[in-house]
Design a protein around this nucleic acid. Structure first.
Lengths: 251, 251
DNA sequence: CAGTGGTCTAGACCACCAT
DNA sequence: TGGTGGTCTAGACCACTGG
């Protein structure tokens, strides 16, 4: 680990920054895994022969980045990246529904193994015609009304069977975690509008060409290799996105 | 101002937090205006008889909130809330366009004074039938292609004429600043999808019922009174929103 | 109780900016 | 040059957690 060597106290780069990056690297490397505790502040201060305040400054950078969280009296722990499928606070609607005590349910329509076609090869950046992917189709329903239709693909390396458990966490990061050794750590989401296709309209029970949100999500491992890809179609008349900015009071 | 009284060193509330809130209040009150310098750190430390490190902790809260920014060797200044009309990094496309050196242009189609109708009275939360608003219609064009169509309303209190200058900054906060004494400090944006209306289709040169993004923005003063409201329609085939989250490297 | 993170101090030296 | 913010120290005391 060459810890002492990783901090140059005479560098122009601030010590807190060097330490923050070192800790970040430990986490990205997987030497510190989500849920695990970081070394204590006193420990780090002693190891690197720096002040505890400097250690705290370093850790506060990671806290701000959402990579770790501190618990008074217990320790500081590596966070799990949150990559919910319910993107963009898209849940404005879903939360409304929950608050009213209604039931939101995601149903698995189909789950099987597929071979790479041109689109998948491009999305995953692979050339192997024999590459295989897990394919899931789900529909989200609230109060008997169908709201969202999703197709999800994940790389299929382990020859692991598709489990019932998948029904419990059918989000893309959830499916990936179940079927891959790599850790999903970041994602890219692209939102577009479209008119619903014939298939989408029939699954969602809306008229053909009704406006819909389309969100494509790609989930990556720490080396930016795609682990999963999904395309979600949301009813345009049931979802809206609300953003606040400027100097809104938060509390 | 009762400065000394605003900090209770024996309170359970951290000093840095009290000071941060006090400074925030000064800014929200308008006693410190955008562009103005905060008292220096040494000054604040002396005034409140606290350590400079504690002052820095307080200020760092405001920096994180985007309310102030610090410049080494110069001072710390009150920031201006940024409430650009080009929302949600919607500019994925606009930036592409700029990078290619193409021209993006916003044209004023119409500007006049209107009386309150039911919709406006609701949006602005007023009951006065005689309330008047400034009304603007603009279209945004890139390379001869019409991309966005916007209708904007601002309260009209001053009997100030509509200036040519408005052509230069036709964003909602910009229009408000020109026609109101209140400062626009926060905004709410709601994004929905829709099929284009006949009017929208004709202005944008797209076919009727083509899918579009609709963004409604409301801009508020420090007391959450609406100062302006706009409805923007973006061509669905020309705009998309891209979001990254998780642990993407930033630098 | 011992160990953790949270706050705070009273200094210090530095890099940067303006004059 | 004097004043600003940026970093860092070596302590201190506290609140909270767990055994």
């Amino acid at each position: 680990m060459q810890e002492a060597a990783s901090i140059d106290k005479n560098s122009v780069v601030p010590i807190y920054y060097q330490l923050a990056k070192w800790l970040e690297a430990q986490i990205r490397n997987g030497e510190l895994k989500p849920g695990e505790a970081l070394p204590t502040e006193t420990d780090l201060a002693a190891r690197f022969e720096i002040s505890r305040m400097t250690v705290r400054r370093a850790i506060s950078e990671l806290v701000a980045a959402g990579m770790v969280y501190a618990q008074q009296g217990k320790g500081t722990f590596v966070a799990s990246p949150k990559l919910d499928d319910i993107v963009f606070e898209m849940s404005n609607f879903n939360e409304d529904v929950k608050q009213r005590g209604l039931q939101v349910k995601t149903t698995l329509l189909e789950a099987r193994i597929v071979r790479a076609d041109e689109e998948l090869k491009e999305k995953f950046g692979v050339n192997d015609d024999n590459a295989r992917f897990l394919y899931f189709r789900t529909v989200t329903t609230a109060e008997e009304e169908r709201l969202a239709y999703e197709k999800k693909y994940t790389i299929y390396t382990k020859s692991k069977p598709i489990l019932e458990a998948e029904l419990k966490d059918p989000t893309l990061p959830g499916l990936i975690s179940a079927h891959s050794d790599s850790m999903p750590v970041s994602s890219k989401k692209v939102l577009q509008v479209a008119n619903s296709s014939k298939e989408e309209a029939s699954v969602l029970g809306i008229s053909r060409n009704a406006p819909v949100f389309v969100i494509e999500q790609t989930v990556y491992d720490p080396d930016l290799r795609p682990l999963g890809w999904s395309r979600s179609v949301y009813r345009g008349d049931r979802y809206k996105l609300t953003f606040y900015d400027g100097w809104f009071k938060k509390e």
